[in-house]
């Protein structure tokens, strides 16, 4: 950055106005977060004031009509779906990244990367549509009713896979070439080079990508809503229908009023805190890589 404060910028009256104007815009952008949090907190206040947090953590279940707003079953379902999705997407995504960096011939690697880019842009509602009309019937033939935690896990895994693979790919690309050449010179096999040199060196970048993918899986609404069956219950098996926190908001906002509406905003606040924490740790992990 240069500061030509006295010589050139004093020449223009536009310049004098530019800095404060842009600062005002930047402040407005940042204030948007405060506005979002303010509105979420304000709208959920009626539910929080009337019974506090205990109401969401120690009620007898989610029965909005009788004022019971137990979030645990849906929180567990959300965590189970995101964890399962990551357990599938992480090995496949990292495997795909290793494929493009170390195994694929260059044209194939480029094509694979382009496929991942295309998939990263496919709307979640399209994943949900495909899951509902193709995946769920297949699951239903085997383990009825089909709309289940398993379906949610599979669709979420597909959705976050490009994120995992593309971040792992760029993390592997950032491994110093000297290290790889050194490993080669020491007579390491290709698999040993990948497992002992490249992956440890790219660890932080891959972890950051995984955290981003986890945040995306936790915050996803439509795809999960369309395939998970949406029964409020603590998941006990892979093939049980479950309802996640995001889907609950989407399903009930249309008719919720009063404390019920406030409870939905409170669950939104909780979700935001969870996802922001993950995104923040992903940023921290990424910073450490660059340092």
């Amino acid at each position: 950055m240069i500061s030509s404060a006295n010589s050139s910028s004093s020449r223009s009256r536009v310049d004098a106005a530019l800095r404060p104007a842009l600062f005002a815009l930047a402040t407005a952008s940042a204030a948007l977060l405060a506005l979002v949090l303010l509105f979420l907190a304000g709208e959920s206040w009626p539910a929080l004031a009337e019974g506090g947090w205990r109401r969401f953590l120690a009620s007898d279940g989610w029965y909005p009509a009788s004022g019971d707003f137990d979030l645990w079953p849906m929180a567990w379902a959300t965590l189970a779906a995101a964890t399962g999705a990551l357990a599938i997407a992480l090995p496949l995504g990292v495997g795909g990244a290793i494929f493009t960096r170390f195994y694929a011939p260059p044209p194939l690697a480029a094509a694979f990367r382009r496929l991942l880019g295309l998939l990263a842009g496919i709307p979640s509602v399209v994943f949900g549509l495909w899951g509902l009309t193709v995946l769920v019937p297949i699951l239903a033939r085997w383990q009825p009713p089909g709309t289940s935690l398993a379906a949610a896990i599979l669709i979420l895994a597909l959705m976050v896979l490009p994120t995992v693979a593309l971040t792992a790919d760029s993390a592997l690309a950032a491994v110093p070439p000297d290290w790889l050449a050194g490993a080669h010179a020491l007579g390491l096999t290709r698999s040993a080079t990948v497992l002992r040199v490249a992956l440890p060196a790219a660890r932080a970048g891959i972890a950051g990508g995984a955290l981003l993918a986890a945040a995306r899986a936790l915050g996803e609404t439509m795809a999960v809503l369309m395939v998970a069956g949406n029964v409020v219950q603590t998941p006990t098996g892979l093939f049980e229908p479950v309802r996640v926190l995001t889907a609950n908001i989407a399903l009930e906002m249309a008719y919720a009023a009063g404390t019920h509406r406030a409870a939905l905003f409170a669950s939104g606040l909780l979700l935001t805190a969870l996802v922001a924490l993950l995104a923040w740790s992903a940023a921290r992990v990424g910073e450490r890589t660059n340092a």
Binding site: L40, L218, G219, A250, T272, V275, A276, W280
Partner: peptide, 9 residues
């Protein structure tokens, strides 16, 4: 990082 459904709210 805010989930889109929360932006909806």
């Amino acid at each position: 990082g805010v989930p889109s459904i929360v932006f909806g709210l």
